[in-house]
Write a protein that binds this DNA or RNA. Sequence first.
DNA 1: CTGTATCCTTAAAGATACTG
DNA 2: CAGTATCTTTAAGGATACAG
Lengths: 173, 173
Amino acid sequence: MALGTDYARQDCSLARALEAIGERWTLLILRDCFFGVRRFTDLQDHLDISKAVLTQRLSTLVDTGLLEKSGGHKHGEYTLTEDAIALWPAMFALIKWGEQRWSPRGPRRIFSHAVCETDIATSGQCPTCGTIPPPGELQIRPGPGADPSVRSDPVSVALRSPRLLLQPLPVQR
Amino acid sequence: MALGTDYARQDCSLARALEAIGERWTLLILRDCFFGVRRFTDLQDHLDISKAVLTQRLSTLVDTGLLEKSGGHKHGEYTLTEDAIALWPAMFALIKWGEQRWSPRGPRRIFSHAVCETDIATSGQCPTCGTIPPPGELQIRPGPGADPSVRSDPVSVALRSPRLLLQPLPVQR
DNA sequence: CTGTATCCTTAAAGATACTG
DNA sequence: CAGTATCTTTAAGGATACAG
């Protein structure tokens, strides 16, 4: 965002949250991490973002304590910290809201509670066990609203197989 | 955001959502509307935002169908549409996440289920009735993490009295 | 009260080339 | 593979003055 990414003088937790994750691309980067993307190049390919911007965002996210980097300079991996994983309910709610408005053919992705084998509700609750499962217990698969024609890069292809959230995404190149 | 507010070629509802509410200030404007702020000047005073930016954001929000304007040119009022009210779970989750990380003295604002007179949990559920109350059934009051020293303008003062969400905020000038 | 209209400064983002 | 470095373009945001 131009001219400052902070919201000075706002006595509000929402402002603090947005200072951490409100910048352009940041939330999409974290979404990809939830989906198992961990490599710099994979993020770049999937997000269609410039290297410079991606570098800056990743560095900020590491500084803020939302991402952890491992693996050194080459073949490094970025993984979500506990603080970032705690963002899942907000991200899930945003995805659901986006679906209601802009996915007339239904959800693009469906989340289910792995242990109950039940698709979870819009509220985030599992209809079978009644809990709000943490992301690590969720499986993701393409839904009726998905549009495979949009993307055909290796990361997008890999993301189309059903899989657990937070698990590393194996990208075939 | 500089150079485009959209996320082209992202087959993802989160991207669509962010195109609508991801711009700087937009989510804070909607938050204020949930809290009952409805007037141009009140938003400007409370957000510490320039008129030009506020005008642009409000106009976009009306175009997107998230705000409705009534009252004509002067003394106009902006109110949330149903689509915007549906954003509450996401906004609530973001506020809670921000509190966990940046409000060590506890929540700045406490939400309670008006009919049950019970403070709602981090999950958004009312411990008494078990439901996830819609924003219209929520009351808001200052919490231990609030910092009244930050702001003393009329809007901030008015926001410090306990009140129902979505109800118009009476600002004394 | 609720905006428009201008001007100006800053920085955000893309493109491209280069590096350990 | 995972970035830096540089350059250029564009737009975002603040300030100020003005208007219906």
